[in-house]
Nucleic acid binder design. Structure first.
Lengths: 154, 154
DNA sequence: TCGACAGGTTTCAAAATTAAACCGAGGCCT
DNA sequence: AGGCCTCGGTTTAATTTTGAAACCTGTCGA
């Protein structure tokens, strides 16, 4: 991420900014596991199978960025728990988008063995839809990235 | 991505699969630029400021994965154009999710200078919402990843 | 024919990732 | 109390990936 920093530091668009934080190999998988209920270092490490030093670095960054907070649990005071902040929890839309795209485009038939379901009734979740302000459905070519008038305009 | 391959190759969930393809530093930015209308190697390279060898490798992979196709344009037969496939175009939901999260969580006030708008009327786009099968709005804690019954079940 | 340019590939140094060894603080068992 | 185990990391050294810059090749226009 050497040149990346230089390039995207003053990134102009939200996509680039998001990717600065969650755009690497492991981060979104860590967040995914957090949604699954994992909280402890060892849980993430064992489940994802990534090197401990990398996990350590990622968690450190994610805490810095306000995605996780560290909470020391009364039960085992020496084992910190990594808990999603509201900012972190809002990433669920991104996860759902990735999940749906992956499920639709990246599996052979019968290969898929997990799915994201309604916690309450176990029913499937609707495909995300991009909609215009007035409710019209927008396809992949119906939007564009526009520059805002000027920084000092509003 | 050494260990990553080993770990996620037989990845069980759609999120992991997606990230195998688009989960690196540059790929989604390339796709973003493709939605902006960029098609040529030099356009991507100049706009993103990434090294040519890296861009070359990414585009090669993306073509392999069926995100882009190469089309030789009648105008300039020697300059290939990289064009999104339907599979690639479906990534727009992911981009929108990242964009909205980034816009909401990664900018200081007044810092944001681009926005994603309706191509037709320039109006803003609605925030993506995760909804249950029956239309209920689902928050970040209202879904879970469940294992499917069995690979050879349906 | 000359030079310029687009679209890469090659080369080599710098940075990130990895696995594995190590370490300190608690628990737990005896 | 002593010994051993686990958890949560850090350190170290080898491997991979990345990045910048040089280089190559085919096309184009003058």
């Amino acid at each position: 991420m050497k040149g990346r920093k230089t390039n995207l530091e003053g990134a102009n668009c939200g996509i680039a900014r998001s990717l600065q934080i969650v755009g690497d190999w492991w981060t979104l998988l860590i967040v995914r596991d957090a949604f699954r209920g994992y909280q402890r270092f060892g849980e993430f490490q064992k489940n994802l199978g990534l090197a401990k030093n990398i996990l350590s670095a990622r968690l450190k960054k994610l805490v810095q960025e306000g995605i996780f907070t560290i909470e020391a649990h009364p039960d085992s005071p020496s084992s910190p728990r990594y808990v999603l902040t509201p900012k972190g929890e809002k990433l669920y839309t991104v996860l759902v988008a990735l999940w749906q795209w992956g499920e639709e485009n990246c599996f052979d038939l019968g290969e898929l063995d997990t799915e994201m379901v309604d916690r309450i009734d176990g029913a499937p979740i609707r495909a995300l839809q991009v909609k215009a302000d007035d409710g019209r459905l927008l396809g992949p070519r119906d939007f564009r990235l526009a520059s805002r008038p000027s920084p000092a305009d509003a």
